[in-house]
Simulated assay, not measured.
Amino acid sequence: MRMLRLVVLLVALVACGMIVGSPVRAADLKITEMAVTTKISRNNPIDAVRRISHRSVKALYCFTRIVNPGAQETVIRHVWYKDGTMASEQELTVKGEKWRTWSKKPVDAESVGSWRVEAVDSTGKVLKAVEFKVH
């Protein structure tokens, strides 16, 4: 009987999110900053690209600053779209309450077009998106 009560208590604590290791609710993640940048310096973007020549850089980065209440490890995805078609997708681990992460996309002559990067949570919900053009 005592063991049954312990199991019931553990199940209740996990369901309430009170035991470490329980999944982060996707609705709890908040993106406080998201930018496409030409470079990351000291874990921060140096600029925010809106329009850029494909000749001026070899790669672009999508920087994302996240607030993750409870600081439990989870993942987000950066989904890169060119002219409305998915071009790439990168899974990024979030390991703390305040976390910074980024993905990288090579740039060349084939990159010319309208771009959008979406930050997507584990349920597929778009948390934030940024748009830019490569000419």
Score class of each variant (00 low, 15 high):
Val14Lys: 12
Trp99Thr: 05
Glu73Met: 13
Lys105Leu: 09
Ser111Ile: 02
Arg65Trp: 08
Asp47His: 06
Ala109Thr: 12
Val79Cys: 00
Val130Thr: 05
Ile76Cys: 13
Lys58Glu: 07
Val134Ile: 04
Phe132Ala: 02
Met34Pro: 10
Glu89Met: 04
Glu97Trp: 11
Ile19Phe: 15
Met34Thr: 15
Thr123Pro: 13
Thr64Ile: 03
Val49Met: 00
Lys105Pro: 15
Thr101Phe: 11
Val117Gln: 06
Ile31Leu: 14
Met1Ile: 11
Ala109Gln: 09
Asn44Lys: 04
Leu127Trp: 10
Arg25Lys: 06
Gly17Tyr: 11
Ile66Val: 05
Ala87Asp: 07
Cys16Lys: 03
Ala109Glu: 13
Val117Glu: 09
Ala35Gln: 04
Ala119Val: 10
Arg100Phe: 12
Thr74Cys: 12
His78Lys: 01
Leu13Ala: 02
Val11Gly: 10
Glu89Phe: 04
Asp83Thr: 04
Leu9Pro: 10
Val24Glu: 06
Val49Thr: 02
Ser111Arg: 02
Ala71Phe: 10
Asp28Trp: 10
Lys30Asp: 04
Gly113Met: 00
Ile31Arg: 14
Trp99Asn: 04
Ala59Phe: 11
Val24Gly: 10
Val24Leu: 09
Val120Gly: 06
Thr37Leu: 01
Lys39Ala: 14
Arg2Leu: 15
Val20Tyr: 15
Cys62Gln: 07
Thr93Lys: 08
Glu73Leu: 13
Ile66Asp: 04
Trp99Gln: 08
Ile40Asn: 05
Gly84Asp: 02
Ala15Met: 13
Ser103Arg: 10
Ala71Arg: 06
Ile31Pro: 14
Ser103Gly: 11
Thr38Ala: 04
Trp80Arg: 00
Asp121Trp: 00
Arg51Asn: 03
His135Met: 06
Val36Pro: 08
Ala27Asn: 09
Gly96Trp: 13
Val117His: 10
Ala59Met: 15
Arg5Pro: 13
Trp99Met: 06
Thr37Trp: 12
Glu89Thr: 05
Val8Glu: 10
Ala48Pro: 06
Val14Gly: 14
Thr64Arg: 05
Val11Tyr: 15
Val67Thr: 15
Ser88Asp: 00
Ser22Pro: 15
Ser56Gly: 02
Val8Thr: 14
Val117Arg: 08
Val8Met: 15
Ser111Thr: 01
Asn68Ile: 11
Gly21Met: 10
Asn44Pro: 04
Arg25Gln: 08
Val36Ile: 06
Ser56Ala: 05
Arg2Asp: 14
Phe132Glu: 00
Met3Gly: 15
Ala27Leu: 07
Lys133Phe: 14
Arg2Asn: 12
Ala12Glu: 01
Val7Leu: 04
Ile31Gly: 15
Cys62Tyr: 09
Leu92Asp: 02
Ile40Ser: 01
Ala27Tyr: 13
His135Leu: 09
Ala71Thr: 07
Gly113Trp: 01
Asp83Gly: 06
Lys30Arg: 03
Thr37Ile: 02
Thr85Asn: 00
Ile46Met: 07
Ile66His: 00
Gln90Ile: 01
Thr123Gln: 11
Lys82Glu: 07
Glu73Ala: 13
Arg77Phe: 13
Val36Leu: 05
Ala109Phe: 11
Ser88Gln: 00
Val14Ile: 12
Lys58Trp: 08
Leu9Lys: 08
Val11Lys: 12
Thr64Lys: 04
Ala48Leu: 03
Arg51His: 05
Thr38Tyr: 06
Ala12Val: 00
Leu60His: 14
Ala12Asn: 00
Ala26Thr: 08
Leu127Ser: 13
Ala48His: 00
